[in-house]
Design a binder for these strands. Structure first.
Lengths: 343, 343
DNA sequence: TATAATAATACAAACGTTTGCATTTTTTTA
DNA sequence: TAAAAAAATGCAAACGTTTGTATTATTATA
């Protein structure tokens, strides 16, 4: 039975070599102020003794933790995971790690997470607001404490007082719906998410604009604002929608990949032919649309890149003079309509 | 232009109230040694001044960071994300956060990640070894430093010197293949992943055992060990496999959900009927199998629970006397064959 | 009302680094 | 070869907490 060994610290190395802690610290830092021969001795001894620097002590002393807090509304949406991957990829190059929290679609959790990050654990925060987030005060309060913040996706004007990166949701959906119209479809259904969520509002707006521009009436019956917050309920909600519709549409524009896939599943099971009778478009393009049969036409949203860009904005803030009121930067990323078999 | 405010610390509260730092600290801790009236004054002042404890200082002082490091082979596999969700859910109840790193399927990255966690940033580590991981020394070295470690999934005997949680891969695939056989299928193809990965070896073993038990010949031609490490390549590898096969199988057992879906896609595009001509089984059951048309029969692996259990083992270690050589705990979780339309 | 017991608070070391400045050692210069 | 300059090292404070022990203030006891 071996007991836990004590960690070796600078002091241990210093004592063994009969030099001061300061010199050991500087030697390991390759500071030119210490003689080369000393540095070599220190490195050798450190290695021999199995020295590992204490990150916490370093952080306390330097005031930097090299951690970045990321708050997303939910884990089980590939979009957010992709964004996190993008963030991770970027920040690692700059020697940061990310700490991911889910706000579980709740403003209150979002606020709690934010507060827990206020305790000096992270050097900066990247956040995607929930649909419930209608105020900016909790974020502003963080910024006022001098903690850099970057937002992505689902930004309302009221919460936009920080650097952020997004796509033009309305334009993207406008062009997708217009594409359907130009293909001759007229009875176009819309499936969005929670009405309160900005991205879904924008995508709905795009849909309406396209319909209006081409003088196509918008029927309430063909509109579904999916209220579910998890996969299973989304499924039944969409099934119910199509089961209760009086006359089947000839196209469906959906606001997420998942809605699109669930729509295709439901319609296929009801016996409809895609795309012959009904076209379907998804939003996101996170891989599954390509595998489904028929493969799904999608608006491709650059999720990974969105993460990278958000990370870049944040790291840039680290290097800027700390001006709380600096002009906020907004990055709008391009989307693309990927044509596949469902249209 | 407002400049960054200085954080308020215990000292500031102490000075304002003309009491000592120690008393402030104890008051905020609700330590009964401080008078109630003092405690109340301290709380009020702390709130008024916007005090937020400094997590880093706390950690340095207490020797606990309340962070847990998680190392997974890749981000873009839902299985790992699900496990992370499970871990997160469990540890949050105990006031821990998780720090996720990807080893990108590389032993070298795994080792690097492990070393970076050795710098006192985390209180414990949960790791899923890559297919390249054939030795236990890097993990043993961590454990020897007194850092609790729990492994999950893909554990070889050689790396099993730590608590771990897994499923019985061989038995799960055995029963799935036997199910196909009992349904009258004989020409059963096997699609697995990287040959070096223990889980795929085990799943292959289960396949072979089932076939052998029922005296069905195993044809090399019907075996694919997918070597790709990303989605796109998996797709083409599977397409090639079926294009080059001399006579199509009447069933395909696959080792991940993704292989299963790609298989179905390929076969449907080739014009085959599922399940009439060919049955397909996937492994994992991470949601997509249910959406696909036809829906996919799957071995359901309790990913979320796997995460929870791994987290539980870890947190238990925190509370145990620190015995490096303690008897390792092994948890085997149940799988289940979920029958759907693809069989 | 002096003394003992208890309650409340303060002091200071510790956690493991970094770093400005002081000191010592070595090298250069005259 | 002594003084000046440069190089190498050391001292000690700082980062913001926690906590064991010492001290002071308050209450209880005789």
């Amino acid at each position: 039975m071996t007991l836990k060994k004590k960690r070796v610290k600078l002091e241990d190395i210093a004592r063994k070599l009969n030099i001061s802690i300061a010199t050991v610290s500087r030697a390991l830092d390759e500071n030119p102020r210490v003689k080369l021969s000393t540095r070599e001795k220190v490195f050798k001894t450190a290695k021999m003794m199995g020295y590992m620097p204490n990150q916490i002590a370093k952080s306390l002393s330097s005031g930097k933790t090299n951690l970045i807090g990321v708050i997303i509304p939910r884990y089980d949406e590939s979009f957010f995971i992709e964004v996190c991957r993008g963030i991770d990829r970027y920040v690692r190059k700059h020697n940061y790690k990310i700490l991911i929290s889910s706000s579980r679609n709740s403003f209150e959790f979002e606020r709690e997470n934010l507060i827990s990050f206020e305790r000096g654990l992270v050097d900066g925060i990247i956040l995607s607001p929930t649909h419930e987030t209608e105020t900016f005060v909790h974020i502003k309060s963080i910024i006022n404490k001098g903690i850099p913040v970057v937002l992505f996706d689902n930004i309302r004007e009221e919460v936009s007082g920080a650097d952020h990166v997004l796509i033009e949701d309305d334009k993207a959906s406008f062009s997708a719906v217009e594409f359907l119209i130009k293909k001759g479809r007229k009875r176009i259904a819309f499936i969005g998410g929670i009405k309160e969520k900005k991205v879904f509002q924008d995508r709905y707006d795009g849909y309406k604009k396209a319909m209006t521009k081409h003088n196509i009436p918008i029927y309430e019956e063909l509109i579904l604002h999916c209220e579910s917050l998890d996969r299973e309920n989304e499924d039944t909600e969409i099934q119910d929608f199509f089961n209760n519709i009086s006359a089947i549409p000839d196209a469906v524009f959906t606001c997420t990949d998942n809605y699109g896939l669930l729509t295709m599943k439901t319609l296929l099971k009801m016996g409809y032919k895609i795309p012959e009778q009904i076209s379907v478009i998804g939003f996101g393009d996170l891989g599954l649309g390509e595998i489904f049969v028929p493969s799904m036409t999608c608006i491709a949203q650059p999720s990974f890149e969105m993460g990278e860009k958000a990370a870049e904005l944040l790291i840039n803030q680290f290097n800027e003079p700390n001006d709380v009121n600096h002009r906020k930067k907004v990055l709008k990323l391009k989307t693309e309509l990927i044509l596949r078999d469902s249209t």
